[in-house]
Amino acid sequence: MFEARLVQGNLLKKVVDAVKDLVTDANFDCSSSGFTLQAMDNSHVSLVSLSLRSDGFEHFRCDRNMSMGMSLGNLAKILKCAGNDDIVTMKAADDGDTVTFMFESPKEDRVSDFELKLMDIDSEHLGIPDTDYAATVTLPAAEYQRICRDLSSIGDTVVISATKDGVKFSSSGDVGTANITVRQNTTADKKEEQVSIDLKEPVALTFALRYLNSFAKATPLASHVSLSMARDLPVMVDYQISDMGHLRFYLAPKIED
């Protein structure tokens, strides 16, 4: 059987809210090492990769590797019924066709359980190669969200270019053009405002803003987000989930025809 108890239950809610608009149905894979999900969006332009390590759960038991297909919309509906401070426990039998979510209030005065029907989902797993990225910028997650939102009002695509001067986000459209540059700032008073840039070589890539905007729905998960880029390769947008794992998005670039 599978059983996992997460004291910070709202973390699961944040994860599902971050991906449910991008991915409709997905398989959650459970093994003794943890709880993972890999899924492409409907147009196969981006890839979501979630990893929650077993040691990040208060209790984790998985006797047999299993894949649980869920409608993320339905899962979000169920998780919405959990209190913000509730402890969430997931349970599934090896051969069952449901997964149960149990919500316990911190004061232990309210317990509820919701059963979600599992579904058969055909999904192919993609191998994500280890990449030597040319540039990685780590910036406040709220700042990334703001950049994507602001540029979306100007154009549909963004050119992200990393040079020694900083990382520039440029967009253009009917309205005009916009450029936003973030520079390294590791001495900001508050740690949550710090920006760090790791540049091995200059790189510039073009991406569809609607996907980058969608990834920003993960903002509540982490104080910072990292964007890693290499020439002619998908960008990796990485939200670290403290003490547990990560939620990563990969977006294929637009390339000159």
Partner: peptide, 14 residues
């Protein structure tokens, strides 16, 4: 013009 690549053209199926 720019052409949108698909993610599976970069990451092969396992």
């Amino acid at each position: 013009g720019m052409k949108q690549k698909s993610i599976s053209s970069f990451f092969a199926a396992k």
